[in-house]
Computed example of a mutant assay.
Amino acid sequence: MKIGVFTVLFGSKSFEETLDYLAERGVESIEIGTGGYVGNAHCNPGELLQAPERIKEFKKAVDARNMTISALSCHGNPLHPQKELARAFQDDIVKSVQLAEKLEIPVVVTFSGLPGDHEDAKYPNWPVSPWPNDFQEVHAWQWENKVIPYWTAMGKFAEQHNVKFALEPHGGFSVHSPATLLKLRKEVGEVVGANLDPSHMWWQGIDPVQAIRILGNEGAIYHFHAKDTAIDPVNVNRFGLTDMQSYSDMLSRAWMFRTVGYGHDLKVWSDIISALRLVGYDGAISIEHEDGLMSIDEGLGKAVYNLKQVLIKEPLGEMWWV
């Protein structure tokens, strides 16, 4: 396993400045934003695809620092009912897949997307209750008419370019849990797997260790985010886990994102890393910094320090005691 970082938090720095900053802190792998909600400050696929020599320079800059690229990430909603928005997200995904092939990166991270509740809808609709029965009808319509057809087509496209999708299970999207990820994977095939982010498991009431076992037993974990969540034991009883307050209302929110080790202790994180090893995941542990109580430098530094204590890096040896 390698300590990685999702570089979008350094959008104000140049790509090479970012690489130097991370290399100095012992980071071994990077996940790069290529569009969608996270932007493409360090990597614009449309521009690079038009200039093959720049692709070589891009890769050389990473190789020169003994780093790897774990994934290209373009988190967006290609199923958005507003067609112009959907097309923009779709374009980012297509170009990210094409660039990933050129860079020999096997994984593109994104969201499953979320449709509206009918063809003329304006906004996405996230049904999470089986009653009233209207929600069941919306859910069935979305999956049968939008989610499965879209990802079936995109799966075939990705396979043509030797790339797999690591969809991030995330509240507010059709794929938001291990079950919904596996539901889509059953329809589309192994070209679809998970970018598992434990922070989004915790705030939905899902144990990340069990999520790893569920998805890992199916060989369905293609990428991993290292981000923590702290649940406030008082506020959660007032607002519930589906708290709609702004992330900036940290004093009153039911939960907030934290850097690694500040929502759950290192025993929990060692259990997470061990579970990943148990199911055969040996890729990047990509830090995603979204801690509102810490600066980027401090939050990232603490995440790297804490992960170094629990990360399992060496190959498995022979069990001499067996």
Rank of each mutant, 00 (worst) to 15 (best):
S199D: 05
Q160P: 08
G155R: 04
K102C: 08
V209Y: 07
N133V: 11
P178F: 00
G193Q: 00
K122M: 15
A158K: 02
E119K: 10
G113S: 09
T152M: 14
V97Q: 08
Q210R: 05
R185Y: 08
R213D: 07
K95F: 15
P115C: 13
Y123F: 10
P198Q: 02
G216W: 06
F173D: 01
E159W: 10
E218A: 07
N145D: 11
R185A: 02
V138F: 14
K186Q: 15
V188C: 09
W202D: 02
D120L: 12
P106T: 01
N125D: 14
K102T: 07
S177R: 02
M154V: 04
H139Y: 13
N133R: 15
A100Q: 01
F173G: 01
I148H: 12
W203V: 09
H118T: 07
P130V: 01
V138G: 11
P149H: 07
D120K: 09
D197Q: 02
T180A: 04
L181D: 09
V188T: 04
H200L: 04
A140T: 08
F111N: 05
H161D: 12
E190M: 03
W203M: 07
V109T: 10
N145V: 15
T152A: 15
V108E: 14
V188M: 06
D197G: 01
M154W: 10
L99I: 00
K186L: 08
H118G: 05
V108S: 11
V191K: 02
K156G: 10
P127T: 00
P149L: 10
L167F: 13
R185K: 05
E104C: 13
N133Q: 15
S96P: 13
K102D: 11
D134V: 03
Q142G: 06
N145R: 12
G113T: 07
G216F: 08
L215I: 00
W141T: 06
E159T: 02
P149N: 11
I93H: 09
H200T: 02
E190H: 04
D207W: 09
W131N: 06
D120G: 12
L182E: 00
G171C: 10
E218K: 00
A140W: 13
H118W: 14
H139I: 00
K186N: 14
G193I: 00
M154F: 13
W143A: 06
E159D: 10
E101V: 06
A158G: 02
L181V: 05
T110Y: 12
V128A: 12
W151Q: 05
A153M: 12
H139L: 11
W202C: 03
G205K: 03
L103H: 09
S96I: 04
M201P: 02
P178L: 01
V108I: 10
K122A: 14
S177N: 09
P124N: 05
K183N: 08
K102M: 09
H161K: 15
L114P: 07
P124C: 07
V175N: 00
S96C: 06
K122Q: 14
E144I: 04
H139R: 06
N125Q: 13
L196I: 04
L114I: 08
V108M: 14
H170W: 09
Q136E: 15
W131A: 06
P106Q: 01
P208S: 08
S199W: 15
N133L: 15
Y123P: 03
V107G: 03
E218Q: 07
Y150C: 08
M154D: 05
K95N: 13
S129F: 15
G189E: 08
H176D: 08
L181I: 10
S177T: 05
V94S: 04
V128L: 14
P178M: 01
L196P: 03
W143V: 02
